[in-house]
Nucleic acid binder design. Structure first.
Length: 117
DNA sequence: TCCTTGACCATTA
DNA sequence: ATAATGGCCAAGG
């Protein structure tokens, strides 16, 4: 656990911004967030940040593995809380997994572009 | 420096 | 669907 008092590195700032911009009711994978932040291949950094900056109250529940599953060990406290938080905002979680085709952020973007056309 | 540790990922079997 | 594997890379010790 890192202190939030310490200055936040630039690379972290951009990631925090992307994480905060995930719409309520949608989810994104660690890798997708890193890529959107212009930091491809740094999925692990995203996970590190979610834990380190927990005091910033980020919407961490919206971040899942690339296959849509909750990253925490199934049944653990974190797993249960994430599941509950997602359900609370309308995201369907079945067996610890979310259907990215339905709730993925990317899908949200596709929808917006489609409406535009 | 080197080594280990992750809220990861894509590929392959 | 699950598991092993190799890759990845920032932090910490």
């Amino acid at each position: 656990m890192k202190s939030v008092r310490a200055p936040i590195p630039p690379g972290h700032e951009v990631l925090l911004r992307v994480i905060r911009s995930i719409p309520r009711g949608r989810v994104a994978s660690y890798g997708e967030i890193a890529a959107r932040a212009g930091l491809p291949r740094r999925a692990r950094l995203v996970g590190r940040i979610l834990g380190d900056y927990s005091a910033l109250r980020l919407p961490w529940q919206r971040v899942l593995r690339a296959d849509g599953r909750i990253a925490f060990a199934k049944g653990s406290a974190g797993w249960r809380e994430q599941r509950a938080r997602l359900l609370e905002e309308g995201v369907v979680v079945r067996n610890g997994r979310v259907d990215l085709a339905r709730f993925g952020w990317q899908r949200d973007l596709d929808e917006a572009l489609w409406k535009m056309a």
